[in-house]
């Protein structure tokens, strides 16, 4: 018997039940668990950031790598209060602009390459699929053709919002709207499924903690 494990399990069990009690109505136990989780996660993140960023940077600076002071100084500039009237307060825009530019520079090739080029290519090529015996694979071929219709009509939907006097564009745009709604619906359904699995996992945990079931 490990006393620390048992205390940990009992604490986790009580907190899980406290959070579940919020299903019925917010109560004191639920609010306590909620505040505790916020506090603990803030503390956890603070420790992770300290050990992953601040400590290695400090060690590098102490060991003579003074280049680390440049990002350190730039990072410090972000903490200048935005409501300050002093002329130096605009300095905070320098690191912010640098972060935006670097992030954009890295993301643009990724977006173009991954989303525009490869995502479309992999959805529609090969247009006609064959199995090992040389017969056409109906499912994959329909999938590729449907992908072309989806992509084209979804783009048309965006065009139709600005040029709504063309009947062809409007009709294709309506089909595109349908596919976009299907995509949003399926994303929502997948999220629901994911949360249900989490819920099921917590039930399993309660069962194991109470030593019932399994």
């Amino acid at each position: 018997m490990n006393i620390f494990n048992d205390i940990g399990t009992i604490t986790a069990l009580v907190l899980t039940l406290a959070v579940f009690s919020g299903f019925f109505k917010p109560n004191l136990l639920y609010r306590f668990a909620e505040s505790l989780f916020i506090g603990v996660s803030a503390g956890y993140f603070a420790v992770i950031w300290y050990f992953s960023i601040i400590r290695p940077a400090y060690k590098s600076a102490v060991s003579g790598d003074l280049l680390i002071l440049i990002p350190l100084l730039a990072g410090s500039l972000l903490f200048i209060p935005s409501n300050s009237e002093a002329s130096y307060s605009k300095l905070r825009f320098v690191p912010a602009a640098f972060i935006v530019i670097v992030t954009t520079a890295i993301n643009i090739p990724v977006y173009f390459s991954a989303f525009l080029q490869e995502m479309i290519r992999s959805s529609i090529i090969p247009l006609v699929s064959f199995d090992e015996s040389g017969a056409i694979r109906i499912d994959m071929t329909i999938n590729a053709l449907l992908s072309i219709v989806c992509i084209t009509s979804a783009i048309m939907f965006l065009v139709a919002r600005h040029r709504n006097n063309n009947r062809f564009i409007n009709t294709t745009g309506e089909i595109g709207r349908f596919f976009i709604l299907v995509a949003i619906g399926s994303a929502f359904a997948y999220t629901l499924l994911s949360r249900l699995i989490l819920f099921m996992g917590k039930i399993e945990f309660i069962m194991n903690a109470l030593k019932i079931g399994f």
Binding site: A114, E118, S122, S123, A183, Y190
Partner: peptide, 17 residues
């Protein structure tokens, strides 16, 4: 990937990535 990320990952299923 988890279920809620499936719609983000599935378009790349047949890609070179």
């Amino acid at each position: 990937c988890s279920s809620d990320m499936l719609s983000a990952y599935i378009p790349f299923r047949g890609s070179i990535y």
